[in-house]
Nucleic acid binder design. Sequence first.
DNA 1: CTAACTACCTGAACGC
DNA 2: TGCGTTCAGGTAGTTA
Length: 267
Amino acid sequence: MPELPEVESVRRQLDPELSARRIVDAWADPIPSMPREFHRVEMLAGRQISHVGRRGKFLIAPLDEGLELIMHLGMTGQLTFGNQSDPYVRARLVLDDGRALSFRDVRRFGRMAVVEAGRYESIPTLARLGPEPLSDEFDPGDFAGALAKTTAPIKPFLLTQRPVAGVGNIYADEVLWIARINPRSRRIGRCRAFVLHAAIRKVLAGAVEREGTTFRDFVTVTGESGRNASHLVAYGRVGTPCPRCATPLKKIVLGGRGTTYCPRCQR
DNA sequence: CTAACTACCTGAACGC
DNA sequence: TGCGTTCAGGTAGTTA
């Protein structure tokens, strides 16, 4: 479940390895039921990578010829260097230094696509992506305004990536616990929106420092686990006492997703 | 336009 | 032991 901190950890390791490298060969093994899994990856052969950037959970690598490589890790996607035989490697890029970057993805929710730079119509979530939470673009007033405009429950709304980029199921539970907001709440006032804004910044920045959360599948490019899991307060801790009020944390399904929160201090 | 729902995928965990 | 069911969740697509 790579979210912004996990993807940023991958980006930081990938960028120095891929910057200015040329791709000499590209291979992908899409399945007919998921035709967009590796869209136009064959176009990568011969292209040079400028650098590896990121928007939300999307890795964006500008190429020559006005193209961009977009990568999304989905649920179980991993990017590692190596040529080892592995049934879950779905795509592989051979670089001009002889190394191979492998895209390994057990559940096949990950994606790679080559697009004209900045043309994201074929990737709707990226086309409508909210501001980067750790940049100045993430403005408290704008965020409060966005929350005031929707009638959807706050947690599913955060997961749309529209009010802010990069928050997934784990960090949504964490930030709502810190801000003391019930995940089902449909009305977030200006004051609470500011508190939530600050919580998003704090939680994501801390998780980036610790190279992300490894709950099941996430590993960095070098195969290491993130160190943030022991810092989680809400996610995955159903039944344990709330650190604030000792009430056992409760788990519900909201928007089809498991949601853990404190029924007492998140009203 | 938004909100709400389901499909996609597959190993792990669970129940009998 | 073995088989069937449920769960995990980011995004795309459809429906109301």
